[in-house]
């Protein structure tokens, strides 16, 4: 988080002030003192950067049909004495694509779907939570009842059902175009409850405080109070939930893609790569499925550890 700010060279007064405040903050202190946080944030950043600059970083373009050669198919990793090829560090898959490059392009898809679903959940959950907590009454009771019911089903099941049903309802061609959005919608809708519950609780507490009352007395509209006054006070917990939710969203996407109901096969995510490789497990080509698997676990573990650290750092009880 800090490093992207540092890269920015336009130094205005407000900016330096903000930077100074950031480096003096408890969060930065706790971050510097925690090796786990530094390593996990580093790994996550490496994934983000590799995914963002995939065409530059990846040694090959696995989706350029002219560049791949079927003669290179099923090559083991480069350190294999007999068939290893130094061009392909961790081997190639059944179509002769470089596994490392497909992983880099694949994590791009996984991260995009993960981020988009988290953003969708976050906006939906925070909005419903704010309204529910601030307005109260019947609306609150209704929203929370729906949340209760949804919470009694596992998120992955809801995502699977929505995605599966959408798949069979839509005509095949239409679904191929919309598969991404359907997937993001399915994963996103399965995760809003956590945000809504947390935000609702905070909104109910803030609502009765004097500064909100003051804002109401001077005639500020309800929507403005919610966004400008209450929302900034609930960002901490929301940030923690979002980080951990990102890990869950990435796993959910990978699982759905593994089951064959996720992203379309033309744009494989990490889950799709594992699914493809799984067919070759028995013939001994373990690298096609194991390396995308390792990439997935490392990414999710790093994001999880970052979330754990953030939760502890923002928790006033633990300071």
């Amino acid at each position: 988080m800090g490093s992207s700010d540092m890269a920015d060279t336009t130094i205005s007064k407000g900016f330096t002030d903000r930077m100074r405040r950031f480096f003096d903050s408890d969060i930065w202190y706790s971050f510097r003192r925690s090796p786990v946080a530094i390593v996990s944030t580093g790994i996550t950043l490496v994934f983000f950067l590799a995914a963002a600059f995939a065409p530059i970083v990846a040694p090959h373009n696995p989706f350029d049909l002219a560049a791949i050669d079927i003669m290179d198919s099923n090559l083991p990793p480069a350190w294999d004495e007999f068939e290893g090829d130094t061009r392909f560090l961790i081997g190639t898959d059944d179509q002769g694509r470089d596994v490392l490059s497909t992983i880099i392009y694949g994590s791009r898809i996984s991260l995009v779907v993960g981020f988009a679903s988290v953003a969708f959940s976050l906006v939906l959950g925070v909005a419903l939570g704010l309204i529910s907590g601030y307005v109260g009454g019947r609306l609150d009771a209704f929203i929370m009842r729906v949340a209760d019911v949804q919470l009694s089903f596992p998120a992955i099941l809801i995502a699977l059902l929505i995605d599966g049903v959408a798949r069979s309802v839509m005509p095949r061609e239409l679904h191929a175009d919309l598969a991404f959005y359907v997937l993001i919608f399915a994963i996103g809708i399965s995760g809003w409850v956590q945000y809504a519950r947390t935000v609702r609780g905070s909104a109910m507490v803030e609502k009765s405080k004097e500064y909100v009352q003051a804002a109401r007395v001077i005639g500020i509209r309800r929507g403005t109070i919610l966004v400008r006054h209450i929302l900034p006070n609930v960002t901490g917990p929301v940030l923690v939930i979002a980080t951990i939710h990102l890990a869950i969203a990435i796993i959910t996407e990978a699982t759905l893609s593994f089951l064959g109901v996720g992203v379309p096969p033309t744009t494989p995510s990490l889950g799709t790569l594992i699914r493809i490789g799984n067919d070759f497990l028995f013939s001994g080509e373990w690298w096609i499925t194991i390396f995308p698997g390792i990439a997935l676990v490392v990414l999710v573990l790093a994001v999880n550890l970052m979330g754990d650290w953030l939760r502890d750092a923002l928790n006033p009880k633990l300071r």
């Binding site: 796993i251 594992i274 497990l281 698997g293 676990v297 573990l301 999880n304």
Partner: peptide, 22 residues
């Protein structure tokens, strides 16, 4: 247990198949 939470179910299955089956 933290690794266990980060390992998706299907990957656990694949790893078990690879070691004990293949």
């Amino acid at each position: 247990s933290l690794i266990g939470v980060s390992l998706p179910t299907f990957l656990i299955g694949i790893l078990l198949i690879l070691f004990f089956g293949v």
